[in-house]
Design a protein around this nucleic acid. Sequence first.
DNA 1: AAGCATCACAACCGCTCACCG
DNA 2: ACGGTGAGCGGTTGTGATGCT
Length: 244
Amino acid sequence: MEGYNVNLSVRKGAWTREEDNLLRQCIEIHGEGKWNQVSYKAGLNRCRKSCRQRWLNYLKPNIKRGDFKEDEVDLILRLHRLLGNRWSLIARRLPGRTANDVKNYWNTRLGIDSRMKTLKNKSQETRKTNVIRPQPQKFIKSSYYLSSKEPILEHIQSAEDLSTPSQTSSSTKNGNDWWETLFEGEDTFERAACPSIELEEELFTTFWFDDRLSARSCANFPEEGQSRSEFSFSMDLWNHSKEE
DNA sequence: AAGCATCACAACCGCTCACCG
DNA sequence: ACGGTGAGCGGTTGTGATGCT
C-alpha cells in the first residue's frame, strides 16, 4: 500500500499504528465531528475523509469484527430487499457493524449469491423483486402523528422481530395495528397512491416520527441510548419512488 | 515450490445534500 | 437565490491473504 502514496502533500494508503493512536487520542479529547480540523489537531497528514472513514470503520469503539452471524445475514438480506444499496441505513440495524462492512460483505458474498439466484430465477420468469418504497404522504398540521410528541409505537422492533416479520409483535393504538389505522381517515392525512403492499412493508412503517420530519434519511432508527424522538424519517425516499 | 486466480476488506474517490453567509 | 464549505454516502479500486493447479 505504500506505493499507493502518490500525493506528497497528503498521506494516503494504509494507516499505521501511530496514526491510529493519534487519531484515537484526538477524538477522545475533542470528540467526533469537525473532521477538517481533526487532521490538524491530531498532527496527521491525512485528509478529512480518510480520518473520518478510519474512525468510523475501524477505530470507533464497539465495532464488531469477524464473521457475520446467521441472523445478521438474514437481516441484511431482508433490509437490502427493502432498502436497496442503502448501506448506512442497513448498518444502523446491525449493532457494531459499519456500512462499509455490510457493503463489503454484500459485494463479496451475498451479492454474488443473489445474482446467481437472479440468473436462475430469470429462466423461470419469476416475479420481479420490487424494492418497496413508501409513497408520498400529505400530513396536515393537526395530525396526531405530527402534533404528538409521544412515539407512535411503544417500542421499536428488535432485530429479532425484523428477521421474522410475520411474527412481529406490534403495539396497538385503540386496539388496531397502528399501521392499519395510520393511513385511514382524512383527519389524519391523506394517502397518496397506494402500491401493492408486501409483507415486509410493515418494516417501513415501524418508524418513530420526528416532529420535524426533516431528516434526509428514509429511516434513522434510534440507537442504543438515543431517545425515541431522535428517530426520524423523511419523504425523500417517498418522492424518489415517484421520480422513477 | 511456484505461479496464478480468487477472495476479503481497507481505503480512496466522486457525488450529493445540508447549512450558512 | 446563490455560491462556498463541510459532512456523509455509495461505488470502485488496490493489495495482502488464501486456495488451487
